[in-house]
Every structure is written in structure tokens, then in C-alpha cells.
């Protein structure tokens, strides 16, 4: 391993002129190539080569099966994330502003964020059945703590010098909150939303694998049970890709909105 490259001597480094998208392309090529080779060896009968998975993905898209599955997965995910956003931000902001609420909700939220709450997801069925509502609840259980704790941290980390400045100009508490604290915290609140979406994806997959056999989770389970592994991998790749693209888009929006204003 070359420790050399970290030395700040700019001279030793020959600048390799591959553009950054080129590196990403190369990286994908290496990983998918290795996957192809491993699948062709094959290292296991349950590990199809990349080409077979890609073909299966095309088939699933062409037959409309994937679209149908996501028709069942995405609506509860969106509803759950939106609900978690509303609840989480309201909770986080009010916790940040009122000590009593911090006292009451901070510790349980930290526990929910730290502990493996996946354990209680099967319980949801007993209360909400196996419909969309159960999925929404699963999404919220994973998303709310992340959103709320980030919003809380954003409020608490609001720039003390700015708050002092606003007070020095006789700003009322209300003005300090609406004109300084909340705008200053908005970047972190938004970042919390992104984490919430990430948690939401985990929640929806867990719900569909464990309790409500519909949507993309069911597609994965189904193809596993009939041992059509190329299709199973295609479904897994699709959900990971969807999550990655969604999160990347949110992150881009985040950078556009808040990139320049952060200290």
C-alpha cells in the first residue's frame, strides 16, 4: 500500500487524468465484471452472473411485474415518509425549543434509533393487519426517530452568535425562533428528512419481507421460494438502486438549497 500518496508533496503525484465519472464507470465495470466472473465459475448455484440478473431485470420491467410490485410498495412508503416528516420535524423542533418535551421524548427516541426496533415490526400485524397501514407504520417507526433527532440537533446547534445578535437588536422570542433559529436549523432538518427516507426504505422492505406479502419485498421472497435467483437478484438490485437514486437526488437538492449557506 502506498503511504506516499498522502504526503503533501504535490510533486510525487503524477496527475492521472481520468475524469470523476470515468472513475465511477471504471468502478462499476470492475464490480459488475467480478460479479459476472464469480457467477460464471459459479461460486454457487444460487449466485447468477451479472448478465443473467440484468436480463432478468429487463424481463421484469418489460412484463410490467416490477411496476406492479412498486405500485404496492411506493404509495405506503411515500405516505409513511411524509407522515414521519411531519411528526418528526414537529417533534424535533418543539423538543429543541421546550426543555419539557426534550426531557419527555429525547431518551425514547434515542433508544428507538439505537436499538434493533426491527424486532417489534412483526407485532404491527396484530394491530394494523397486513394492509398498507401496517407498512406505513413500519416506515414511520424507522423514520421518525431519525427525522426528529436531526431536527432537534439542528435547533440546538443554531448559531448562538446570531441569536445573541437578534436579541441585541431587541428581537422578540418569536422573531428569534422564526427568523434565526429555524432558518439556521433548516439544513440539518432537511438532512434529517434524507435520513428518514433512508430509514423508510428499510422499514418498507422489512414490512414486506416479514408481515405483508406484497410489493417488491414479496417479489424477492417469491423468487427465492421458487429458486429463480436471477429474478430475485434483479428485484434486490432494483430496490437498492431505487433507494440510492432517491437519496442521491435528495442530497443534490440539499446541496442546491443549503450548500452555500452553511458555515
Amino acid at each position: 500500500m502506498s503511504v506516499e500518496a498522502s504526503a503533501p508533496s504535490e510533486t510525487g503525484r503524477r496527475s492521472v487524468s481520468i475524469p470523476s465519472w470515468g472513475w465511477t464507470l471504471l468502478s462499476f465495470a470492475i464490480v459488475f465484471g467480478a460479479w459476472e466472473v464469480a457467477g460464471r465459475v459459479p461460486i454457487s448455484l444460487a449466485f447468477p452472473p451479472f448478465s443473467a440478473v440484468a436480463a432478468a431485470l429487463v424481463r421484469l420491467i418489460a412484463s410490467g411485474e416490477l411496476l406492479r410490485a412498486y405500485g404496492e410498495t411506493i404509495p405506503p412508503l411515500v405516505v409513511g415518509v411524509l407522515a414521519a416528516a411531519v411528526v418528526g420535524i414537529a417533534l424535533g423542533v418543539s423538543m429543541g425549543l421546550m426543555r419539557v418535551l426534550e426531557f419527555a421524548f429525547y431518551p425514547p427516541l434515542v433508544i428507538m434509533q439505537t436499538a434493533p426496533v426491527a424486532a417489534i415490526i412483526p407485532l404491527i400485524t396484530f394491530i394494523y393487519g397486513i394492509g398498507d397501514l401496517a407498512k406505513v407504520v413500519a416506515v414511520m417507526i424507522l423514520a421518525v426517530p431519525l427525522t426528529a433527532l436531526n431536527a432537534f440537533a439542528g435547533i440546538r446547534n443554531a448559531d448562538a452568535r446570531l441569536i445573541e445578535m437578534a436579541r441585541a437588536f431587541q428581537g422578540s422570542t418569536r422573531q428569534v425562533v422564526t427568523k434565526i433559529i429555524v432558518p439556521d436549523a433548516s439544513g440539518m432538518i432537511f438532512a434529517g428528512l434524507r435520513l428518514g427516507v433512508s430509514g423508510g426504505f428499510i422499514g418498507i422492505v422489512l414490512a414486506e419481507l416479514l408481515i405483508t406479502p406484497t410489493g417488491i419485498g414479496d417479489t424477492i421472497s417469491y423468487y427465492r421460494s421458487v429458486a429463480k435467483y436471477a429474478e430475485m437478484y434483479a428485484a434486490i438490485v432494483s430496490i437498492i438502486a431505487l433507494a440510492t437514486v432517491t437519496l442521491a437526488l435528495i442530497e443534490t437538492a440539499e446541496r442546491r438549497l443549503f450548500g452555500k449557506t452553511r458555515r
Binding site: 503511504v3 498522502s6 472513475w23 465511477t24 462499476f28 433512508s198 428499510i202 437519496l247
Partner: peptide, 28 residues
């Protein structure tokens, strides 16, 4: 951290998998 090419090849994947719903991989 010390070797740029390694960083450029691996960073994408690390960032994908750190926030992807890896639960979906368990059935595989």
C-alpha cells in the same frame, strides 16, 4: 484515505451501501 485511486473506486459503493436497504439482501 491515503491512496486516491482506491478511494475513487470504492467510495461510490461505500456510500451506496451505507444508506441502502440492505435488509433486501438477506433473502439472497
Amino acid at each position: 484515505g491515503v491512496f486516491r485511486p482506491a478511494d475513487r473506486l470504492l467510495n461510490v459503493w461505500a456510500n451506496v451501501f451505507i444508506s441502502a436497504p440492505l435488509t433486501a439482501v438477506v433473502p439472497a
